[in-house]
Amino acid sequence: MYAFTYHRPETVRQAAGLLSRKDDAKLLAGGQTLLPTMKQRLASPGNVVDLGKVAEMKGIERKGRAVVIGAMTTHAEVAGSPVVQEAIPGLAALAGNIGDPHVRNRGTIGGSVANNDPAADYPAACLAMGATIITNKRKIAADDFFQGMFDTALEEGEIITKISFPMPGKAAYMKFPNPASRYALVGVCVAKRGSEVRVAVTGAGASGVFRWAEAEAALAKRFSSKSLEGVKAKAAGLNADIHADAEYRAHLIGVMARRAVDAAVGK
């Protein structure tokens, strides 16, 4: 790891100030991606702004028909939250299956969403559930936020402070983890809210998380895994690597989507 100067702000305002004033500054949330990346010298920020003491970025609250989660809330806290378990059990289950217990004790929802790893779990939930990403400057719909592999709508100096999930009627996430890394080879999140059904796929797309329109249309008619029989994901635009080729990933998308729908309806 290359040397850096360390900063520990206590408010979002201080953090934003440091981010704009300091050259080559990076935000440190849970550090479960940034620190390994720095150790490999794939990232070498001159200034590291640790958000660990920013109390206003932590916590989970129910606001009407939405669950609002602070960006610095860990995966373990989301998984173990009675509020999330009651309001959006599929989201609690997703958080409880990220990485391993130690990673879940450090990794945060804001860090995961800001990083937009193409195999991360949370982006699929944000997109499928129609979440709103709240920053120190504005509110961004998930549909506009994820813009490609490791790319988001975040601008320079912009910090995710909260993520608001409208409560779906039914929702679930299923993933096929890579047997070695446990990252999603394919992960599918389905959510039904009123008459709207959204299906988001992670792990598979060459440009990161995406919505699967054909499955959404089929499920909008009838929210059952039977509706997806015969609906095939296209291999074009999917990742192909040593772990799986595009055709296999396309196949897995269908399998994971059907399992997610079954889980969402309680089968």
Binding site: Y6, L28, L35, P36, D50, G52, H102, V103, N105, R106
Partner: peptide
């Protein structure tokens, strides 16, 4: 492993198990 996978470095920080190779000492202030 030094890549946050093997768990040989697990310690407890404020009662929670973490991989101490993937945390700065300063984060434990």
């Amino acid at each position: 492993c030094d890549t946050s996978q093997c768990g040989a470095c697990v310690v407890h920080v404020d009662g929670k198990a973490v991989k101490s190779c993937t945390m700065l000492a300063l984060q434990c202030d």
